[in-house]
Computed example of a mutant assay.
Amino acid sequence: MASLLVYASMTGNTQDMADAVAAGVQEAGGEIEQKDVIDASASELEQADGILLGAYTWGDGDLPDEFLDFYEEMDNVDLTGKIAAVFGSCDSAYPAYGAAVDLLIEKLRERGAVVLQEGLKIELSPSNEETEICKEFGRTFFKNLSE
């Protein structure tokens, strides 16, 4: 079972989360391919057994610009029954905390994916403790995928 993790990161915070989530999946025995959203196509989601998406929230609650094309392409994919999860780096200085995570969960569900985990939102850069939370998120994702 191979999973695909697609993420967008500007300052490295979401990439740090992505690395930790991927490490958790691997620790649990899963295979995972990790891609920057700029190098990914939404059609690749249909080939994956499991889907992980990671995005920081831009401004007042928007997806990052580099995620917009991918997000629109998702309208053309069928993700029925696929296990998916979403994470992202957030900034509580803005009124909509981690809204990009919520937007992606909504889109995945709209396309038929099964999102069992609550979206993981970390304030800015993950601390050592939060890095462990990210790994656990990856392990839980793989457990859900394996059941």
Score class of each variant (00 low, 15 high):
E33R: 13
A99G: 03
K82I: 10
L53I: 10
S92D: 09
S41V: 03
D49H: 13
Q34F: 12
E147T: 01
K121N: 03
D91T: 11
S125R: 09
S41C: 05
G138S: 02
L5M: 07
V21M: 05
F141P: 00
L4A: 06
E129A: 15
L108S: 04
D39K: 11
D65C: 06
I133D: 12
M10N: 05
A40S: 06
V115P: 01
Y71G: 00
K143Y: 09
F142C: 04
E136H: 13
I105P: 01
F67R: 02
F87D: 04
E129P: 00
S146R: 11
I133Y: 04
A20W: 10
D16V: 03
G112N: 03
E132A: 12
L145G: 07
F137W: 14
V86A: 07
G50R: 06
A18G: 03
V115M: 08
R109C: 11
K121Q: 09
S125E: 11
L45A: 03
A48V: 02
D65A: 13
T80F: 12
K135I: 01
V101T: 11
A20G: 04
I133V: 14
D91L: 11
T80Y: 09
A20I: 06
M74Q: 01
S43W: 09
K121H: 07
V6H: 10
E106D: 15
E130R: 05
L53M: 00
S3A: 15
M1I: 01
S89E: 06
L68K: 09
R109V: 12
T140I: 14
N128M: 09
L103C: 02
V101P: 00
F141R: 05
Y94D: 01
D69W: 14
V6L: 09
K35W: 14
K121I: 02
A85Y: 13
I105S: 08
L52N: 00
A18F: 13
T131Q: 13
